[in-house]
Design a protein around this nucleic acid. Sequence first.
DNA 1: CGTGGTGTTGAAGGAAATCAAGCCCGGTGG
DNA 2: CCACCGGGCTTGATTTCCTTCAACACCACG
Lengths: 236, 236
Amino acid sequence: MPLVDKLDRFMPLTNAERDAISSCIEPEREMQAGGYLVRQGEPYDGSYVMLDGWSVRQKYLRDGRRQVMNFLIRGDAVGFAATFFKEADHSVMALTDIVYARMNHERLMRLIADNPRLGTAMFWSVALEEAMLRERIVGLGQRSAREHMAHLIMEMVARQRHAGIEGAAVHLLPINQILLSDALGISPVHTNRTIRRLVLDRLISTSPRGIEVLDEERLAETGDFDGQFLHEAGED
Amino acid sequence: MPLVDKLDRFMPLTNAERDAISSCIEPEREMQAGGYLVRQGEPYDGSYVMLDGWSVRQKYLRDGRRQVMNFLIRGDAVGFAATFFKEADHSVMALTDIVYARMNHERLMRLIADNPRLGTAMFWSVALEEAMLRERIVGLGQRSAREHMAHLIMEMVARQRHAGIEGAAVHLLPINQILLSDALGISPVHTNRTIRRLVLDRLISTSPRGIEVLDEERLAETGDFDGQFLHEAGED
DNA sequence: CGTGGTGTTGAAGGAAATCAAGCCCGGTGG
DNA sequence: CCACCGGGCTTGATTTCCTTCAACACCACG
């Protein structure tokens, strides 16, 4: 199970622990691109795990502007900490057709109570999400469009790799330029120019299906990306 | 205890629960302005609660640029979820002389195991932190300097009010313009001009000690601030 | 009475937004 | 079959916001 694998990356779990978490995951469901896992302004319906496909976490302002917080892939949890809020302050929308599962929250909380190690692992997962938000803040606040874009692409490559998504699909992002511009906080036109320049410099290439990374090393360099913030290796 | 009061705002706690949490808080300590609770690149030393004064959560890039994530006041937890990381990806620095306390993390985790309601409350606190980070992302990505500044000031006013900091001090922020510029992701010069314009419009006033809010309603309006994201009222 | 940190303001330059036009391509319908 | 349409991508020209550079005022402090 993707979530179990993700936690295992941080803290090797016993088989019993793996089974325990898995037992909180309800049967798989599917959703079409454009569907919502969480709707801004409405109550949380529960918490979920992404099993396949891409989603986006985004927030609309009253006047229609949109900010993309993050992209979600296999193994990412949705609304785990936030279910306690009475209504969602942002949305989570399926970007492609996705496979996901509901988590039985009560059961999970009970398991955490019985096994503190699982609690630690879940807290780690929440802290990881926070670290990614902080990285987006740094990108938006301090980095130029070019740096920020390079950083975001590298982040997605690294996350997909961690999630065990390998092969040709690794580098392809199902993200169009409008979406990307709302993630980087810049206009679509400027997004396009920035992409073109990265292509010209042979750092990435584009195709109708998305962006492909050509030179990871130089892309990481231009984005000042080091992956440390993903806390790849666990503490112990 | 400020942390207890904060959790209590979300989910009314029994006296036993209040005592339980308080029992995890070690004796008060003090730190001078400029000291560090968490140092970027070094291991977490533990987790803390702010009891008085102001701190700032910030991250430095390799080339010296700095981004401020957030300001911390009474009742805010530091490093609660993140202690599990092997090293900190950001710093928390005392902005004024502060009073704080260490949390006994193991004991707290054990209490959470024994009382799921406490776990829920702690998760809520973490989710609240996340919500504030998301709001900073929206501000940096979509709002103009003027909107963002108005929003940030209103956020700090609301948070201080929630933390029970009343009276004349409510509106005064011990934040200089350089710090503010690193929070808003703009240059110090532009920060100054933006402040001046807010003063000219009689939304705020400045004094050697900081910023004072003159017209909360119009300031909230120009910042598109609604406070919903602070999830003031608990779910039930 | 210098000295350094902070705030303020003007002028010039640059990064990104906006406005505008045209392209490619897949879908749809006459 | 082809005309038409719309969504996404691309590029040029102009404008706006913000940065950078520079100078100076203020004040706490040694």
